[in-house]
């Protein structure tokens, strides 16, 4: 089973110390972020049970939270997840075309992952980058002012990185 490294356990302990004594449940959201980053980009039932044990809360308290927030993935996702915003301001600047283009280029529909598990396409709601539309989130960063050319180069960049890491 997956377990945190010593370093990550120390980080978890530090986070718990930010909240009042006995309120270690407050660390749940940050700890789930660390768990998702550490264990393949998604939260399996085992991972959630492990987090429950670490925070001394019941597994259901973790499931409740993991299913509520859109950033937690409850099933495996591709190595690179394109989360493209589709809300009003991005739509006014052509996000529909960008979503369609990415889908065409990767041969998948929103919500799907490519067969090589490299890319997932997901549509999301406003990410607070409306003035730099159209945009998407890729990992911890935003890619803004998207054009077809920009999408091409991002896909290229991901493929190169994936090869370099293999």
């Amino acid at each position: 089973m997956n377990k945190f490294s010593e370093e990550k356990l120390a980080k978890v302990k530090e986070i718990i110390s930010h909240y009042p004594e006995g309120k270690q449940k407050s660390a749940l959201l940050p700890v789930l972020h660390i768990a998702q980053d550490s264990f393949g980009g998604w939260l399996s039932a085992e991972t959630m049970d492990y987090v429950a044990e670490l925070l001394q809360i019941t597994p259901i308290e973790v499931y409740e939270v993991a299913t509520f927030y859109s950033m937690y993935n409850l099933k495996p996702v591709g190595k690179y997840m394109f989360e493209v915003c589709q809300t009003g301001p991005c739509m006014l600047n052509g996000s529909d075309n960008i979503i369609a283009y990415i889908g065409e280029k990767l041969g998948i529909k929103p919500g799907e992952t490519t067969a090589d598990d490299l890319f997932t396409l997901k549509t999301v709601e406003c990410l607070g980058a409306c003035g730099y539309a159209p945009m998407m989130q890729l990992g911890k960063h935003y890619r803004e002012h998207l054009t077809k050319e920009k999408v091409d180069s991002i896909i290229e960049e991901c493929r190169k990185n994936a090869e370099a890491n293999n």
């Binding site: 930010h18 407050s26 959201l29 940050p30 789930l32 972020h33 509520f68 927030y69 859109s70 950033m71 937690y72 999301v124 709601e125 406003c126």
Partner: peptide, 12 residues
């Protein structure tokens, strides 16, 4: 005084 940053997880 201490200030801590607490990240949400996607919920308007």
């Amino acid at each position: 005084c201490e200030i801590y940053v607490h990240r949400g997880a996607g919920a308007y």
